[in-house]
Design a protein around this nucleic acid. Structure first.
Lengths: 332, 332
DNA sequence: TTGTATGCGTTATCAT
DNA sequence: ATGATAACGCATACAA
């Protein structure tokens, strides 16, 4: 591997000059620039990014810390971020936190230690306080899917309450009064917000919320199935079930079908997120759209603007959910 | 940020001693080690990984280059790799190649430049030759989902031909003779292998393969739907359709249903991969199991063994697919 | 076992 | 506009 030394020797200029053309500095004569470029090509020179990072304290890469690497939601999110970053000539360094505090902090430290210029965080185990403290450090970051008021201009999230509200309201409009709810972990902000919205819609329609119709799942498909089984086993009656996300909704439909229920004739289902697979379910799942891609794009553009000074843009921190009407809900 | 200098000063020992305890060297007296550790704690010292990389030429991280960051297959794969790596105290640096040669090489260079100790590659645009040449370089790597004979001991892959064979054989056993086939891009090795297996099973049963029953998709859900529409539009007749992966199978089922077909009564479907969502489809999808997690785990263990000298293990390069019988195929 | 000195490949601060 | 030289923070032969 050729170094900057050899380039400078071959080009007959100083180290500094080589470094300058490398970094697109102004004030370099056309002539020397040409000599340097020629030498670089001849030597097939490739800058050592590690050495650059050490000397400059930056890396042209942004760290992404996400709860899990699989699942439709995270997948979509990672894809958008990486694409947007690469278009800007930056790289993503991706790591998983597994919703475990120690593990998340571990991943965070890794990214910071690797001198990422900025971070995109999608974490739920790390406390608000920790993040607020982190914001005083010197690695800028944005937070996805979570709103911390003290640093809310760095946060990008969905109006989850509105989403939960829209789902329930729609079911009610279709004539449903007995509505079961399969929730995500109630330790997570988005879960509780969605549930809050759900309750709000019920209240507006003068329908009382029954604890017996609530099941707390974990956002994974299987817990949707467990949820419906739980509800059936406890002999609760309901004509529709709202789910905190699409994966649980698909699990719930599967569970209902195991009991020979007809969907949506005997029971309606509504999901949340509008994951890619929802329109391939049968019946196609009515759900709430979560503009993940927009959110991911916006957050990386925030970084492009604030950290790399690359572009201007209007920042939107809160995104709006919308009802996607398909075929899993029936007029009652 | 405290440096090794300050630690050495506070501990009253030399730089080298600090460096030694940092790297768990033998031949360090208990006494000095204690002094150093104490100093580190007091200063809240955190080693600079970049400087370490520069000086040592390694990074304790392995690079992962994958075609896409989303999709059930890649998600499962990334998850397994990251988990296995972290258990071993190593980190994953993940990047996407988007099945585009320039982009893949770009990602590859990034990982190599970042001094990853090893690479895990799931790429399909980069040529065999390029990879063979790369194998002579000094960054060790493994290749997933692809077998290049010259470096086959670094390759981990499925017996795709067997998979395609098993799927078709099963359909034939159920009495199907007119079998449509929705394939992945025939430029990709796995696609052609699966198709080859399919044809082999047909041949064994003396059923001639009809080009008119073949549709070439792109592994995405939508192309499954497009495929079934194409087949219907061209008035081909068939009682079953085999798909190169589960996503296309789900799209195909959706398409068939749009035409009011009953599944599996009027038409049977079989997928490939056994993605997480297949048992939540309706009817539950009969498919071929691809042990992605095992493969991912094996490949990272190969690295743990060969690069980090961490563990012994028996290497398996080729993984075996199995039929997963569910409810989307009917006796004909 | 411990310490000294040098190198790793750049960037950045000065002069010139 | 260009060049010398000192960081950057650590690893590692080599010497002691």
């Amino acid at each position: 591997m050729a170094t900057i030394y050899e380039v400078s020797a071959l080009a007959g200029v100083s180290l500094s000059s080589v470094s300058r053309v490398l970094n697109d500095h102004e004030h370099v004569s056309k002539k020397t620039k040409e000599k340097v470029v020629a030498a670089m090509n001849e030597l097939n020179y490739r800058p050592n990014t590690i050495a650059r990072s050490l000397a400059s304290n930056r890396s042209n890469s942004v760290g992404v810390l996400v709860s899990e690497l699989h699942g439709p939601f995270f997948g979509a999110m990672l894809s958008s971020v990486e694409l947007e970053l690469r278009k800007a000539g930056k790289h993503a360094v991706i790591t998983a936190g597994h919703s475990d505090e120690e593990s998340e902090i571990n991943g965070l430290d890794f990214l910071i230690d690797r001198k990422c210029d900025a971070l995109i965080l999608l974490v739920d185990a790390i406390s608000d306080d920790y993040l607020i403290k982190l914001s005083k450090g010197n690695t800028p970051f944005v937070i996805l899917n979570r709103n911390i008021s003290e640093i809310s201009d760095h946060c990008f999230y969905l109006d989850n309450e509105l989403g939960g509200y829209l789902a329930a309201k729609y079911l009610i409009e279709q004539g449903h009064k007995e509505i079961a709810y399969i929730s995500g972990p109630l330790t997570k902000q988005d879960s509780t917000e969605r549930l809050t919205g759900h309750k709000k819609a019920l209240a507006e329609a003068n329908i009382s919320f029954k604890e017996s119709l609530l099941y707390e799942g974990d956002y994974l498909t299987k817990s949707g199935r467990d949820g419906i089984n739980y509800l059936i086993k406890h002999k609760t009656t309901f004509t529709a079930v709202a789910c905190s996300n699409d994966e649980m909704a698909s699990g719930a439909m599967r569970g209902a079908r195991d009991h020979k229920w007809l969907i949506p004739e005997q029971c309606s289902f509504i999901g949340f997120d509008n994951a890619f697979f929802t329109e391939y379910l049968y019946p196609q799942l009515t759900t709430i759209n979560f503009p993940v891609n927009d959110m991911a794009k916006m957050s990386t553009q925030w970084i492009l603007k604030n950290v790399y000074k690359q572009k201007e843009l209007d920042i939107i921190n809160m995104f709006i959910p919308e009802l996607i009407e398909r075929q899993s809900v029936k007029k009652n």
